[in-house]
Design a protein around this nucleic acid. Structure first.
Lengths: 226, 226
DNA sequence: GCAAATTAATGATTTATTCAAG
DNA sequence: CTTGAATAAATCATTAATTTGC
């Protein structure tokens, strides 16, 4: 607990970077400030700053952000799902919002990258039940499968959506009993957490607001092929 | 104020849904949690929950999310533009980050889908400088194309070590001394240093979460936690 | 109290996507 | 339609925690 700098590789030649507490604290601090994908310049500067605490290279900083971002995202996803489940299944009343709003559950995502652009932050999020069915008003109770097509997004409102709604089986994400609490905190990294590799996602759909549902839903026919 | 339930169409036969305050509050709450494009199941459940406050159908929920998402996006876009303008025209220096970070301008993107996919929330955030170079470790210093190889990690760090990484000119993002105080740098921003659209500076923001903020930036002193 | 044996974290790589150019 | 840049997702591998037997 004392010699902090005994850091990592100072001794072990250097198999892998082993950050010191100070380094971690600072990196987390930056992350919290909103930094997500530092540019080369930023990495460089950060690295130099952190070097006073022990050996470190730019790539370590780069990887740290990559990993941290990805893992925070996973954690957040779990929490969000848990929250939603609780909401849908147990809360008769809603969090009223006036006091709440910034729900604790949703802290992470602020993705506002401070200085980066985040390529795509899509995280399909495997919804438990056979969700992702079709959301159109009409279908709201039924399901269909129609895959739409990818990439035709528009700036304003994306218009498309590609998803594959398959009817999956109900994952047990949603607890049967309302009493489930979100203790979450997964325990095993090993197992596959996201079993669904590619669930596509879609985007916002088009729906034409003037129309009574249907057309757009079902009638997605025309979309260009990219 | 009194009869909340006089909700919508109770009177007008049913021309169109007229949400009650409670319904709106709840919908917004969900939206804030990150919900963007609820699945059919979710819509169904939400609808049932909200029904206690007045007439409502699944399609209403569906449309509400569609509209709300679109409108929020528009609003955000305007704000981003406004920010950029401010940034480009007035701030010579970089927001140091220490105080800044959670920029207000960039609030929207939180997109962490609860169960939705967020297509891409790209808001490229016009980075001023010509950042966005390449951040990969290899490149971090090197330029080239040496692609490292798959799994030959023993090799030491083939190419990756960043060597040339250091010759950049120091951007003044980070104060030179770890002990620096957070008075930000205000130094000289010459280059493109900005990658962070950050906040307007407002005043207080620093210490947030228990983290030291960039000590390293400002230099509050290293301390270890735990 | 150790140190081998397990398990949990997390650093480092690889692979797949996505989108923009050409 | 092809290719390259950028990065998210998945995976691999090593280190730190912890557990367990002595």
């Amino acid at each position: 607990m004392e010699g902090e700098n005994l850091c990592s590789n100072s001794t072990s030649s250097g198999s892998r970077w082993n950050p010191t507490k100070e380094q971690i604290n600072m990196l987390e601090s930056l992350y919290m400030q909103g930094l997500r994908t530092p540019s080369a310049e930023q990495i460089q500067q950060i690295t130099e700053k952190l070097r006073v605490y022990g050996h470190i290279e730019g790539k370590n900083v780069f990887y740290w952000f990559q990993n941290h971002k990805a893992r925070q995202r996973q954690k957040q996803k779990q929490e969000n799902i848990a929250y939603l489940n609780r909401f849908l299944h147990t809360t008769p009343v809603f969090p009223t919002y006036q006091n709440v709003v910034c729900s604790p559950y949703y802290v992470q995502p602020p993705q506002s990258d401070l200085g980066f652009y985040s390529q795509y932050s899509k995280v399909p999020v495997p919804l438990p039940g056979g969700f992702n069915t079709r959301i159109i008003p009409e279908n709201i109770g039924k399901n269909k499968d129609k895959v739409i097509h990818p990439r035709s997004r528009n700036e304003e409102f994306d218009v498309i959506s590609n998803k594959k709604w398959s009817n999956q089986e109900t994952l047990d994400l949603f607890p049967v009993h309302p009493t489930g609490i979100l203790q979450a905190k997964t325990g095993s990294p090993n197992s596959a957490e996201n079993s669904t590799p590619s669930s596509p996602s879609s985007s916002e759909n088009n729906c034409i607001f003037g129309h009574p549902f249907f057309d757009f839903l079902c009638g997605n026919g025309p979309y260009e092929s990219h």
